[in-house]
Design a protein around this nucleic acid. Structure first.
Length: 264
DNA sequence: GATAATGTTGGTCG
DNA sequence: ACGACCAACATTAT
């Protein structure tokens, strides 16, 4: 469910919990293999995003690292008796709690001391993500460009939605072998990635549905980027740039939507 | 019932 | 080492 903009939105929503102490921890899903004793009594020193990971730095030097995978949500809310599909609740004072809600239960949460997310690639919204950096990641690789963009060891945070949207903006066919992109295309792709992620963060991410398993930045609001999707989920509709019908194909087991006329 | 879903990992086979 | 392809994980929605 969440890619970089959605995770970033969750992290921003959690900031009021920084500096506060975890007074109780309910590990409701044994699959998480978390011990409440490692969490209770700890003060939260910071909550940050790295790629699609959410990192809570605790005051004893440990870190709680959460990954939401497909259907996870992580929000600071008023304590309630029951939120469906809650796998973990971190209770704070003032009747607030951080809820990890995850219907499909594919998400992960672990406590560890090391800072290694070391397999993660460059942050696409950092100053390090330059056009040249992208060119270096692409150089010499014949793998299709869209799966390359989704590889977290190269760029950390792009997923199926925003990879497809960036390629539409850059007018590049997602099936193109990466190393065949021209200089100007790499430049356009770099700009498109930064633009689409920046806009999506500003829109609080993308909410696709209204069921319990759908992303919402807060209990009340929805992510508004859905209105700006140009290809994702639009197979069969007209391309807003050229009018051609958007097509859907499958790459590495994931659906890819693209315009066969203006993405070349 | 079949299919697909915002993600990742681990395996196989070339 | 690289890349392509699958299965698996688990559950909901259409």
């Amino acid at each position: 469910m969440p890619e970089l903009p959605e995770v970033e939105t969750f992290v921003r929503g959690l900031q009021p919990a920084v500096g506060r102490t975890i007074e109780g921890a309910d590990v409701l899903d044994p699959k998480l293999a978390l011990r409440p004793s490692g969490l209770v009594g700890r003060k939260i020193d910071s909550i940050e995003r790295r790629g699609k990971h959410i990192v809570f730095a605790l005051d004893d030097g440990e870190r709680l690292i959460v990954h939401l995978r497909m259907s996870g949500r992580l929000r600071l809310e008023r304590s309630r008796e029951e939120i469906p599909y809650t796998r973990l609740a971190l209770r704070l004072a003032r009747e607030q709690a951080i809820y990890f809600v995850d219907p499909r239960r594919l998400g992960t949460a672990r406590v560890c001391r090391d800072e290694l997310d070391e397999d993660l690639g460059v942050e696409p919204l950092s100053a390090e993500f330059t056009r040249e950096r992208l060119a270096a990641l692409i150089a010499g690789r014949r793998t299709p460009i869209k799966p390359l963009l989704m590889n977290q060891r190269r760029i950390a945070g792009l997923g199926n939605i925003y990879a497809a949207e960036a390629l539409w903006r850059a007018e590049i066919d997602p099936r193109r072998p990466s190393s065949e992109l021209a200089e100007a295309e790499v430049t356009a792709l770099h700009r498109s990635i930064v633009a689409v992620l920046t806009e999506a963060v500003g829109s609080l991410g993308t909410t696709l549905g209204s069921s319990v398993s759908d992303y919402r930045p807060t209990a009340a609001a929805v992510g508004e980027f859905r209105n700006r999707l140009r290809v994702y989920g639009r197979a069969g509709e007209a391309c807003e740039r050229c009018g051609e019908t958007i097509e859907r194909t499958v790459q590495q087991g994931r659906s890819t939507c693209f315009c066969p006329k203006c993405q070349t």
